[in-house]
Amino acid sequence: MTLLAVDWLLIIEKLVLIAIIVFASLGIALYTTFAERKVAAVLQDRPGPNRAGPFGLLQPFADGLKLIMKEEIIPTSSNKALFVLGPGLAMTAALMTCSVIPWSSHIEIFDRKIDLQIADINIGILYIFGVVSMGVYGMMIGGWASNNKFSLMAALRGASQAISYELAMGLSLIAVLMLSGSLSLKTIVDGQMAAGSYWNIVYQPLGFIIFFVCALAECNRTPFDLPEAENELNFGYHQEYSSMKLGFYLFSEYINMIMSSAVMASLYFGGFDVPFLDESTLAPNIAALIGVAALLIKIAIFIFVFMWIRWTVPRFRYDQLMNLGWKTMIPLALFNMLVTGALILLKAGV
């Protein structure tokens, strides 16, 4: 029997890793919704959710239970198969990003070295781009299948916004790639961790700002939450959705936030690197745990900034959004790319 002659231990190891990361992402996303409400409350000077459990800590479970218990409505005039497919696609695309993010270095269990990264492929960044461009389909298919004008308008807006900002995002990334000389996220993080080198943010402040703005737009966060502009579009592309299907759409937004924070931390802020600490002097398992904690703290800071912006800045108008994307972000990213390239050549002495 030579069918599937593979290293079963490796498969099991990866499956366990995938399960842990997916469930951890879902758990963190659950509490991100709670954090969102608490941050909003603090910024608006009110207590926020505080009824369910101590300090309202059980609130996300109450919300989840409520969503599951609601009646599942599929509009009669909708395209049923695609209507159900939409939220699933949105969720899958959101979760797929986590496979190339290096969560930490490696741990050693029973003499077996386990990398805390699901797949270290040599095109990691491009993989993330591929998944991001797939994320548009969840929104578009859901909006179209609802057979509702507002949903369709919102879906078209969301998709065109995502495509416009993907370009500037890609251009700002090229500068990082020129610095690190690799598309693998693991190599990029290792390059920032190496002794005597700084985090990429030191070399790429402008690139980071462009990337961050584009990440806001890709996650449909305020001030770029045009697909959910209530005053023009009622509720947005998920207007006809109810119950857990709506929950999937709302939830995938939070998972997108976590994943884009993780990507930003890895690209610009050293990933699982702890500043001023030489990890190689520690036992590998302890170093790995510290690395995971460092990455999670960086992610939490980014998520807080996302929320801070949401409750501070008002929404853009649609033409302002497009002008910003095409006439400001893309030229700036091109300029950043040229300057970075020129400086690298100068330093190399060509």
Binding site: L126, F129, G130, S133, V136, I163
Partner: peptide, 12 residues
């Protein structure tokens, strides 16, 4: 690139 360009952009 096939996925990004064709499945991601052109099909949209």
């Amino acid at each position: 690139v096939n996925l990004i360009v064709y499945a991601g952009a052109i099909m949209v």
